[in-house]
Nucleic acid binder design. Structure first.
Lengths: 113, 113
DNA sequence: TTTGAATATATAATTTTCTTATATATGATT
DNA sequence: AATCATATATAAGAAAATTATATATTCAAA
């Protein structure tokens, strides 16, 4: 299980934005569960990283929050703003571009079989 | 050009190990140039991140150094140790596994067209 | 001839980001 | 009664990266 793989560094914002872009409003716990589920249990976000990131994105105007009480437990839903949707869209594109470039490096071969 | 894309965070060790694994001994400047070349100019490593990483890997016994003077300029070559080769091999596998998992997240779709 | 670009390594200060630990609280299961 | 799952959050510390700076040589152009 990848919890603190160094490669996870730098991907948190991108993951959060992608999920909110795709699924609409979500709450923090839900985001961690969705990531776990989608990755077949391999990627597990930590709350200590997630919440500060969500709060930062809110402060930046990328997302807005609405609180609800469900089953006597409070939930805080996060949703992309209009600006946030554009941000997410850009980040998603940047992700695929970056992976394409990384792939060129990580698939490089000096010795041809 | 991706110089300080946040996605680059956490990939430096992996990139360095991959290049040394594939090309054998290289010097710091050469690593930055190879990365730039392989990525079509899109990924540019910074020295402030590269050298501390190389020194740390040396300290960990992952690589060894040999200094040479070429054209009156000193070069410090880095080479994987036997332990380092195993480390690199593992890291390379981990990279592809991680990307596979990220892909599941980044390709998720809620709305089927 | 001197200025700038390319080559080459390195460190220090600061900032950003993440990990780990901790706190709080409810509901369901054992 | 205890533990697991659900739910949010912060604080201390560590790790990693950015930005700035320093040093020095070679080569080409102005």
């Amino acid at each position: 299980m990848i919890t603190s793989n160094e490669l996870l560094r730098g991907t948190l914002r991108t993951i959060v934005l992608k999920l909110l872009y795709e699924y609409g409003r979500m709450y923090g716990y839900e985001i961690t569960q969705r990531v776990k589920e989608l990755s077949g249990g391999e990627i597990q976000l930590t709350f200590g990283a997630l919440y500060p990131t969500l709060h930062k994105l809110e402060k930046e105007g990328v997302l807005t929050t609405t609180s609800e009480v469900v089953d006597h437990r409070s939930r805080k839903y996060y949703e992309l703003t209009k600006v946030g949707e554009a941000t997410a869209s850009t980040k998603i594109e940047e992700y695929f571009a970056f992976i394409g470039n990384m792939d060129k490096i990580m698939s490089a071969q000096s010795k041809i079989a």
